[in-house]
Simulated assay, not measured.
Amino acid sequence: MSKPSGAIDMTQGKPINLMLRFALPMMIGSIFQSLYSMVDSAVLGRFVGSHALAAIGATTSTTGLILLLATGVTSAISIALSQYVGANDTDRVRKGIVASGWITLLLGVVLGLISVFAARPLMQLLKTPEDVIDMSVLYIQIVCGCGIAQFAYNAAASILRALGDSKTPLYFLILCSILNVILDLISVIGLNMGVAGVAVATVGSQAISAAICILVMFRKYPDLMPKRHTLRPDMPVSLKIFGMGAQMALQSLFLSVGMMVITRVINGYGSNVVAAFTVGSNVQNLAVMLFSNFSLEFIRIQAWFFPFLGWIWLYNSTVKGMGKINISMVSSVVELCSKIGLSLLLPIWIGTTGIWFAAPIGYILGIIPLLIYYYSGRWKKLLTVSAAEPAKA
């Protein structure tokens, strides 16, 4: 398999240097991904009003549920393909790319239909304030109904990262962020589309970035371009990716349910608190100064727990990379139960401030199963078995 510029051979060199070179573009990408969410909030809060900001904030857990289900599957693409790349099994890499395309298409259609028809019942279930529910439903129907744009980008980025190229996805994430800002301003200020404009801007920027990313990927890796006779998915490879993806999607479902419970609690306090939560979540307190007392408190509390958030991602990713999705799922169940229980109990004891503590404490408790498995050393047996298997040319 050809190695274009920008790709890193993760099997050669010092691990710490390889991880830093590979992870740095992904870290920068995360910043840009957060940035365009902040821009959405800033544009709505400044040019439309606090109710529009609250409408998007009320959808966070619901859009997260839909998109994380798909992200779980696209993450499995990266894990499976990276294993094939590490084994130098080019044939299965090609088959994995084809399988990824079909799985992404299926996810886009199924989750898109679910989003369109289930948006209002979900918003009602979460007790979304009546003064913002219509805008919230519309936002979900557009962003998640057309979610195949984001799924396609995630799948392409997962394939590139599995090949050792984490820079190319970064470039297109930056492009997506810039396009999103431009389209936000045009649709909200120029066309006065409000919440619908922000949703259209998000989908449009993702679709353009996904299309260009896929074209560039096959230009850099022409030998991986599927041929007409290879478009039929290989069942063993497809089932492996889908099986791992289903487990990771279930894990995401657990986490999303926890966030939905917290959202239901927050929604019960009205659109003002929902807007404040949105500002705090985006570390953005300039859009709606009316609610700064809530959002600054949110940031101060959660900032103390950021190291635990980093650690749970570190150990979770490590365990997933080993293929031990079940251990990661146990961690998610513990985190979910903690978040639900604490989000219901803490507000009773210490008021709304307790809501901000629920998720961080959940991080801490969720780390425990991961630490037990990792430091037990049982994963070393996987290395012994893998080393005994002959690599395919």
Rank of each mutant, 00 (worst) to 15 (best):
L253M: 12
T318S: 14
A276N: 04
C337V: 10
Q284S: 14
L296P: 00
F291S: 04
L290D: 10
I301V: 13
L309R: 12
M329I: 13
S295C: 05
G341I: 03
F254P: 00
V279T: 06
L344I: 01
I262H: 05
N326V: 06
V274S: 08
E297M: 07
W313R: 07
N285T: 14
F308G: 13
L296Q: 10
S295F: 01
V330L: 15
V257E: 02
I266Y: 04
C337W: 00
T278N: 11
M259T: 15
V333Y: 01
V283N: 05
G280C: 12
K320H: 07
W349G: 02
E297R: 08
L286C: 05
S332Q: 09
L296V: 06
S343A: 14
N316P: 00
N285F: 11
M248I: 13
S317L: 13
L309F: 11
K339L: 08
A287F: 07
M248H: 07
M259I: 05
S343E: 09
G351Y: 03
L290G: 10
I266H: 08
I301P: 13
G270P: 05
S281Q: 12
W304R: 01
I340Y: 06
S343I: 10
T353S: 11
I355A: 09
M260P: 03
T353I: 08
S292W: 05
I299C: 07
M322P: 00
L286A: 08
S332I: 00
L344R: 03
I312Y: 09
V330A: 15
S332T: 01
G280H: 08
T318M: 15
G270T: 10
M329E: 03
V319S: 02
G270H: 12
S343C: 12
Q284C: 14
V257D: 04
N272H: 12
I327Q: 11
I325S: 05
N285H: 04
G321H: 02
S292E: 04
G310V: 04
A249D: 03
W311M: 12
V330G: 10
T278M: 13
I355V: 15
L342C: 04
G268E: 09
A275G: 14
Q302E: 15
N293C: 00
I312W: 09
W313L: 14
V257Y: 02
F298I: 02
I262M: 15
E335V: 00
G258I: 10
G323R: 13
L346P: 03
A276R: 06
R300H: 10
A287Q: 03
P307I: 08
I301A: 14
M329V: 11
G268N: 06
N285M: 13
L344D: 06
S256Y: 08
A275D: 11
F254C: 12
F308A: 15
L314G: 01
Y315G: 00
I348V: 12
L314W: 04
S256W: 07
T352K: 02
F294Q: 12
F298E: 03
V288P: 09
M322A: 08
Y269V: 00
V265Q: 15
G323F: 14
G351W: 01
A275K: 04
G270F: 07
N267Q: 11
G268C: 01
F308L: 13
L296I: 01
